[in-house]
C-alpha cells in the first residue's frame, strides 16, 4: 500500500465507487458531499467505516465531523498511517 497522497485519493475513489455503487465517481481534493449523488450523512457512515477498515485506522468523532472536503480526509489518513 503506497502512502502517497495521490494513491490515497485513488484508494478513496475506489471505496467511494464501491460503497455508493456508482462507477462514475471521480474524487479530487476539493470534492465535498454536495458534489456526489447519494453522499449524505447516512452513507457517510458507510464511507468512513470502509475507509477505517481498509487502512486499519480509527477516526475520532471530531475528525469525522471536521472534514471539509476529501483532501482533508486524505491528509488525516496520511498522518495516521504515515
Amino acid at each position: 500500500m503506497s502512502l502517497e497522497p495521490n494513491s490515497i485519493l485513488e484508494t478513496l475513489n475506489k471505496i467511494w465507487r464501491e460503497e455508493l455503487d456508482n462507477e462514475s465517481i471521480v474524487l479530487n481534493d476539493s470534492t465535498t458531499a454536495s458534489d456526489i449523488e447519494d453522499w449524505d450523512s447516512i452513507t457517510n457512515i458507510q464511507l468512513v467505516v470502509a475507509t477505517e477498515k481498509f487502512y486499519k485506522i480509527r477516526f475520532t468523532a471530531a475528525e469525522i465531523s471536521g472534514f471539509k472536503n476529501v483532501g482533508e480526509m486524505v491528509r488525516c489518513i496520511k498522518k495516521k498511517v504515515g
Partner: peptide, 15 residues
C-alpha cells in the same frame, strides 16, 4: 462505535 454514535446517534456499529 463511539464516533458514529457521537456524530450521528446510530447505536449499532455498521459491522
Amino acid at each position: 462505535s463511539s464516533a458514529v454514535y457521537i456524530n450521528s446517534g446510530f447505536v449499532f456499529h455498521l459491522n
